[in-house]
Nucleic acid binder design. Structure first.
Lengths: 149, 149
DNA sequence: TATTGTTATACTCTATAACTATA
DNA sequence: TATAGTTATAGAGTATAACAATA
């Protein structure tokens, strides 16, 4: 069934690749006092016109109830601000504070370095290929056009 | 920080790749009444001389306390048997039952099919490359020899 | 009636600490 | 004293259901 000793199951490889990059990223972010998940949220908010909480949650593929707690923490840390949307008062407009903008810049580059460490066993071309292949399989793969190697 | 809209963070891609293959695998395993994690355990036990619980846990990279509950379930389902090692009675020898051997065969091939669906957006070469690159980054990457593309 | 944010709750996966029985 | 299995417990991360305010 495709595994045994020759080639481990893809699910196993993905799980452990995930564990490894998470470990490297968390370590790299330690000085900035944020987690990888929190940086993900900041990234979504960065350089975009302010959107609702739900919008941010959808972009990250997490539930809106999960986003609440995440934003609570980020707001406590002074990295994001929430205020009701004037046009639709059910919505919260979420924005990076100035501190948040600084953190996303520095923590972001620390996370990018962690990625480089993660990819170190691969050539640059293989690393690039890995990223593209992952994007292809993640992008709701409707059996459409295949990615070339 | 390497992400924004052009290229999402690697951590994001790996997390969602993981979610997708898990979803596909769980669905494929539904008829066999086992989870992907349980199949992983059965795979480790399959075709090897019987080992201890701890041995199996190490091969999967999970804690020995986690293995206990996993084996409890598999034993309840009649797929594995545990009995004390005659040479060292602290150890439990874990083996697949005949039913377990059948399940691992059929469920294993269903899981392999799920992998194929997962890889469908990639050419065969790109899929092979993905597997090799993941193996390289997961294999405790000590910056040694790089994998070529 | 439907939607946004929120709260309460629960479930899964995981690890740590402490217990037991062996060694 | 050290190790294998076990138990109890706790902490992430996640989702579902229900509620308030608003549309």
């Amino acid at each position: 069934m495709s595994s045994d000793q020759a080639s481990p199951r893809l699910a196993y490889l993905l799980k452990h690749a995930n564990l490894r990059i998470s470990e490297l990223t968390e370590k790299a972010l330690l000085p900035y006092d944020i987690s990888g998940r929190e940086l993900g949220v900041l990234n979504v908010l960065n350089g975009r016109e302010p959107g609702s909480q739900q919008h941010a949650a959808q972009r990250l593929g997490i539930d809106r109830t999960t986003m609440v707690a995440l934003l609570d923490t980020l707001e406590d840390k002074g990295l994001v601000s929430r205020h009701p949307d004037a046009d639709d008062r059910r919505r919260n407009v979420v924005e990076l504070t100035e501190k948040g903008q600084n953190i996303v810049r520095w923590a972001g580059s620390a996370a990018a370095e962690a990625e480089q460490v993660f990819l170190r066993p691969l050539t640059e071309a293989a690393g690039q290929q890995l990223r593209e292949s992952l994007q292809a399989v993640v992008a709701r793969p409707d059996s459409s056009g295949q990615v070339r190697p």
